[in-house]
Every structure is written in structure tokens, then in C-alpha cells.
Amino acid sequence: MLAIDNLSVHYGGIHALQGVSLEVPEGKIVTLIGANGAGKSTTLKAVIGLVKASGGSVSWDGEPISGLPTKDIVRRGVVLSPEGRRVFPNLTVDENLSLGAFCRSDKAAVAADRERVFSLFPRLKERMRQKAGTLSGGEQQMLAVGRAIMTSPKLLMMDEPSLGLAPLIVKMIFDIIREVNASGTTVLLVEQNAKAALEVADYGYVLETGRITLSGPGRELLADDRVRAAYLGEAG
């Protein structure tokens, strides 16, 4: 289980997270939604150690991980698939995927995951030798998701996985998330597509300017008037 307790983050004078507490129970999908600048990405970055927390704590599997260097957190099976793709532009598709599996030693399982990624995204298989930097935006996004799957994490944190994907693929992405979760990975999902995210999630949190203002099971939030008005683009 991932437990975030009273987490604070400052960027210079900006108080980006102001005491965020949330839990991601093992084997579940939890989603974090909120407007631009609410602090969703910051929360994920703070968990993985990419930004320093100025207060509060994060624990994973019962052990505190706040303050650890990112590589040690990743070794414990916590992986972030960052916002805006961040693929290695000068490496090929294949090399990008291999890098995802860099920490794994179980060769057979890695090969199986590779096949799985290729069957999920046939386009990536067609373009195995293409440099990632020349892929289209959506293809890069597929690669980023594929690379995250290749790490075979215990906890997968995804920052806007549906960014820039065509409607058909977006639907597929949420199925993939469900599938990844079914195979034993705990998921913390940040999404702008709040409707789809709340539909797949067991539990959801709403973040507003650095504070959790609302939480509940995904379906309940979907029905909540405030959520509908603010994040689903429907009149409340």
C-alpha cells in the first residue's frame, strides 16, 4: 500500500501541495483528478523523489520512502510514467522498451511483456527500428505507456496516459490499465479525462490548489454534482 500523509511541497514561494493525504491500497486503481496546476503531477513527482517534500511523509509497503533517492524508490517497484511522454528521442522504439526493463532479470518474463506491448500497440511493432523522436505524438505516448508496462512495477503511477491519443486508442488505454491492474500492479492514475478515470478507478481523490477537497469510490464521485460541474464539463 502507498500511504501519503500530510504531504507538503514548496517551489520557492509557491506552496504547491498543502498537506495532501491519500492512500493507494494494494491491488487497487486510485485516481487523482483536478484542474490545471492543482498539483497532481507534483504529488506523483514527490512520491518518486523527483521533487523534495517540505513536510509530511510517504510510505510504501509499510516502509517510509520519503527522502530516498529516486533510483532506490524505483528499485522498490514504484514507477512513474511521466507527463508529456519523455521518451528517449535518439533511441529506437525497441531500445526504449528495453530500457524500461533495465532493472529486471527475468528474461523470459521480459520477452513476454515485450510481446504483450507489441500486441497492444501493433504500430510500435511496425516501427521497432524507428527513432522515438520521429514518432508521431500519439505513437510516442503509446511507447511511454509500453515502456511503463515493461518495468513491471508493483506500483505504477501514470501521469495523463491518454494525452494525445485518438478516441479509439483512449478507450483501449483504460482497458489496458484495467488489465495491468488485474495482473497484480497497483495503479495511481492522474487523468484529465476524469470521466474515464473515475470509471476504471476503485477510488478517487479530487485535488484543488494543493488540497484534497473530495474523495470517494469512483462511481460515487462520478455522480457527485460538484465533480460533474467542475471536471466533467457538464452543468451541475
Partner: peptide, 8 residues
């Protein structure tokens, strides 16, 4: 891209 439905 990167905007929620309301922001869109």
C-alpha cells in the same frame, strides 16, 4: 491536450 473537459 492536457486540459480537462471544463478547461476544454
Amino acid at each position: 491536450a492536457g486540459m480537462n473537459p471544463q478547461e476544454s
